[in-house]
């Protein structure tokens, strides 16, 4: 059960700079923690995020273990035309 919250203004004027805020549910296990018996808890993080606007990449991020659980990213894009924003999160253990 992975959930994402994405907030984008529903409408914008041509040329407006709009803020996009995203939250993705994920534990972001760092790979630096140990169990009580001393075994390393394997890393399980989201490593890549991208936002495409009508197929064109407008923002991309590479994430490392220092990202908080349930990663939050807020960035901007210029409203150029009506269309679709596509978000992609990818990471360890085939998370995508």
């Amino acid at each position: 059960m992975a959930s994402a919250l994405i907030n984008v203004p529903a409408t914008a004027k041509h040329g407006d700079i709009v803020e996009i805020k995203t939250l993705m549910s994920h534990i972001m296990e760092t790979g630096f923690r140990h169990t009580e018996t001393g075994a390393v808890v394997p890393r399980n993080i989201i490593t890549d995020f991208s936002c495409r606007y009508n197929g064109v990449e407008v923002f991309r991020a590479e994430l490392f273990p220092a990202f908080s659980a349930n990663p939050f990213l807020a960035f901007f894009t210029v409203a150029t035309e009506s269309g679709t924003l596509e978000f992609r999160w990818a990471g360890d253990n085939g998370f995508s």
């Binding site: 992975a2 959930s3 994402a4 919250l5 994405i6 907030n7 984008v8 529903a10 679709t84 924003l85 596509e86 978000f87 992609r88 999160w89 995508s96």
Partner: peptide, 10 residues
Amino acid sequence: MTMWRMIGVV
């Protein structure tokens, strides 16, 4: 998984 969702601001 790609999801597209908006929620209202309260």
